[in-house]
């Protein structure tokens, strides 16, 4: 028995006053003796907050006509070498910039700057991934490459970054042939989340037992829609296809921006004509 009002305790594990009283009795006293317990249905994604920041970033990127790519891989897959080589070529064609995430050091950003592109290093400390909120802050210090391409080089980690949308157009997963060919099966969430896979360091294939066909088959099992390009950032082999893919993406981002601006302009003109009439 509840010592205060006498209702049976076994019907009071949830002390909201919507339970049946048998026999019914009056409640003349205040019920501040036990907290009210309620069930709240939420149905909310755990990463809702990150998704909101990512949506804000994505809006900003679209307004400025920037193609944003989120590069993910294991440590040592050659992302920085690939990016240095990439920005060296593309910076003469349109604006490019790089945000790099590492737990410590600014070494990668220095390599990118040496290749001629603005770069900002985010040190995540103990953190294992970049998130959309951190990217928003990075953009306060690194001007957006308007009408160009922003590369986000994520922390070397094939697990955690898969879950965190940064507002990018596409995740690009880099896998090097010095790693196991079964990486797509071992880290399926990342390969499922990526739109493009780059198989890097192909210049080393003659010295290795890496089975390219098997690796590509594994990647397509996990993600039948994934695009795959093979290249060597070191020798330059296969780089043209990657650069063309980027040029095409940049043109598409620009075309979308133009369409949106034209629609805005048409709406503004219509409003002006309406107000003049």
């Amino acid at each position: 028995m509840c010592s205060t009002c006498g209702c049976g305790e076994n019907e009071l594990t949830i002390h909201a006053h919507d339970h049946a009283h048998d026999p019914p009795h009056a409640h003349p006293h205040a019920h501040d003796h036990a907290p009210e317990v309620r069930r709240l249905a939420l149905e909310q994604d755990i990463l809702t907050k990150n998704a909101e920041f990512a949506a804000g970033n994505r809006r900003l990127f679209a307004e400025r006509g920037v193609l944003v790519l989120n590069l993910v891989s294991s440590p040592g897959s050659g992302k920085t070498t690939l990016l240095a080589r990439t920005v060296q070529t593309l910076r003469t064609e349109f604006p490019v910039a790089v945000i790099g995430g590492d737990q410590q050091t600014a070494n990668d950003a220095e390599r990118i700057r040496a290749a001629g592109a603005p770069a900002l290093q985010i040190n995540t400390g103990k953190g294992c991934h970049l998130d959309a909120h951190g990217i928003g802050h990075a953009l306060e210090r690194l001007p957006l490459p308007e009408h160009g391409v922003l590369f986000i080089e994520n922390v070397g980690n094939l697990v955690c970054p898969a879950d965190f949308d940064l507002g990018e157009a596409c995740k690009v997963v880099v896998l090097s042939v010095t790693e196991g060919e079964d990486k797509p099966l071992k880290y399926p969430n990342m390969f499922a989340a990526a739109g493009l896979m780059l198989l890097n360091k192909t210049d080393l294939l003659p010295h290795l037992d890496f089975d390219v066909a098997r690796c590509l088959d594994y990647a397509r099992r996990v993600n039948p829609d994934i695009r795959i390009l093979q290249l060597s950032a070191r020798s330059g082999e296969g780089m043209d296809a990657w650069l063309d893919w980027l040029r095409q993406g940049q043109r598409s981002a620009l075309a979308r921006q133009v369409s949106r601006l034209e629609a805005d302009l048409a709406a503004a003109r219509a409003r002006l004509a309406e107000s003049a009439a």
Partner: peptide, 11 residues
């Protein structure tokens, strides 16, 4: 592939 907070019990 859901990661969702479904419900809470609060007081």
């Amino acid at each position: 592939n859901e990661m969702r907070i479904k419900e809470l019990e609060v007081e």
